[in-house]
Amino acid sequence: MELSEWFHGVVSGRRRGPGAALARLGLTIAEWPYTLAVRWRNHSYDAGRSGVHQPAVPVVSVGNLTLGGTGKTPMVLWLARWFRRRGVPVAVISRGYGAQQGSRNDEALELEHKLPDVPHLQNPDRVQAARSAVDELGCQLIILDDAFQHRRLARNLDLVMLDASAPFGYGHVFPRGLLREPVHGLARAHAVVLGRADMVDQAARAAIRREVARHA
């Protein structure tokens, strides 16, 4: 059994037995300091103690609430094409998770293949990348890929993707669950997009909408 399969079985509660219960206890203990750090960071931004850079052009952010794929890349592709068809010079900015020194990660390669006329800047310092996109490339709109938790860069539209099969990360923040931050962080989102909606029935989709409405 692969580690990821075991982990999902444990945090979802599907995996039973003393070993799984003990693992959940350990992950719950580890969840507390991580959640505290995330809450403190968000509070710092909410209170204005952490600086936020405002680019000279509009910014659209596409992000998610949980770990794993939720359809962010297809949404980024759709948005970039929509703006390009209307003659708007757009750039995509991402952090570049998993990229080796001097190379591009899988998401960057996919975007470059499908959007050859849209510059894609990968830089852990996304504020600097935004400056380069505007000052050097002349872009008039920036799309941030996987940036809901990246709050140093102001945005005009915050889109959050949810995976219908596990929209709220099994109710716990990592490592006890799949949430990157507590669900009430959805209050910062301007819109929520449900991915893989065809994998659940209408009742499940309605329940997800109600839960989102509680926090939006």
Rank of each mutant, 00 (worst) to 15 (best):
M1V: 15
E5A: 13
E5Q: 13
W6S: 02
F7R: 03
H8K: 14
V11C: 00
V11R: 05
P18D: 00
P18A: 05
P18R: 07
R24N: 01
T28F: 12
I29Y: 07
E31I: 06
P33T: 09
P33A: 06
P33Q: 10
A37L: 11
A37P: 01
V38N: 13
R39S: 07
W40K: 13
N42H: 15
H43R: 09
D46Q: 12
A47R: 11
S50V: 01
V52W: 04
H53T: 14
H53I: 05
P58R: 05
P58K: 07
V62Y: 00
L65F: 04
L67N: 02
G68D: 07
G68R: 09
G69H: 09
G69E: 11
P74A: 02
L77P: 04
W78G: 06
L79A: 13
R81D: 09
W82A: 02
W82D: 05
F83R: 15
R84F: 07
A91H: 06
V92H: 10
V92Q: 09
G98I: 06
A99S: 14
R104S: 14
N105P: 11
A108T: 15
L109C: 11
L109A: 14
E110A: 10
L115A: 08
D125L: 09
V127Y: 01
A133P: 13
V134H: 04
V134K: 01
L137C: 07
G138R: 15
C139R: 13
C139V: 13
Q140A: 14
L144H: 02
D145L: 04
Q149D: 01
H150D: 00
H150M: 01
R151M: 04
L153Y: 04
A154I: 07
A154G: 11
A154D: 08
N156R: 08
M161S: 02
D163Y: 03
A164Y: 11
P167R: 03
G169Q: 10
G169P: 13
G171S: 08
H172F: 11
H172G: 02
V173S: 10
F174Q: 08
P175F: 01
G177Y: 06
R180C: 02
E181K: 11
V183L: 00
H184A: 09
G185L: 05
L186C: 06
A189R: 12
D198K: 01
D201H: 00
D201G: 11
A203Y: 00
A204R: 12
A206N: 06
A206C: 04
I208S: 06
R209S: 13
V212D: 10
V212H: 08
